[in-house]
Nucleic acid binder design. Sequence first.
DNA 1: GTCCGGATTACCT
DNA 2: GGTAATCCGGACT
Length: 197
Amino acid sequence: MSLLPLLTQDVLAAAPSLLGWHLVRDGLRARIVEVEAYRASDDPACHAFLRTAMKNMAMFGPPGKAYVYFTYGCHWMLNVVAHGQGDAAAILIRAAEPIQGSELFRERRPKARRDRDLLSGPGKLAAAFAIDASDNGVDLLDLQSKPGLLRLESPDIPAPRIVAGTRIGIALGKGHDYPWRFADADRLVWVSRPLTF
DNA sequence: GTCCGGATTACCT
DNA sequence: GGTAATCCGGACT
């Protein structure tokens, strides 16, 4: 099963199809359960809307690469680049269910009291996987990738049922009401926050 | 459940 | 030099 054809469609089609895929690094593995779509062409919340800069370059590049940036003085965010010809867009990975490596996740997330707190938010997930600027631009679909690099692997379960809701942290007038947040309807216990519509 | 302080980056003037 | 940023965790009710 290949992810690239899915990520070379429009991001609104690509984002839900990323649910169920595994995020992997060395002995760490987690199932993606919550994502958000951001698109340059008509989405004021997208970093690439009406402006290009060093920071958002990756979103204009080939689908399947990582777009990683830092925000709020303390959190890294992991996105997967996904768009058709002539657009720039990315999928923010917001939450995942731990499958393997919980001990290291816990070490990196000492304040997490339950398993549900390990990866239930984009900042938490980045901390648990030790994601930072060095992961920006990495090809997440490269099957030959070196040890230590972040990558995506095929799901081990059938494609999930999907629920959509509005995105988190979007200011009024910036597309706060777009239903561009997608989650695995059967694994809502792992998401960062309840879905709202 | 709600509120609020934290603290870094890169872009802007 | 100012500020906004795809948020988290601790403190409280």
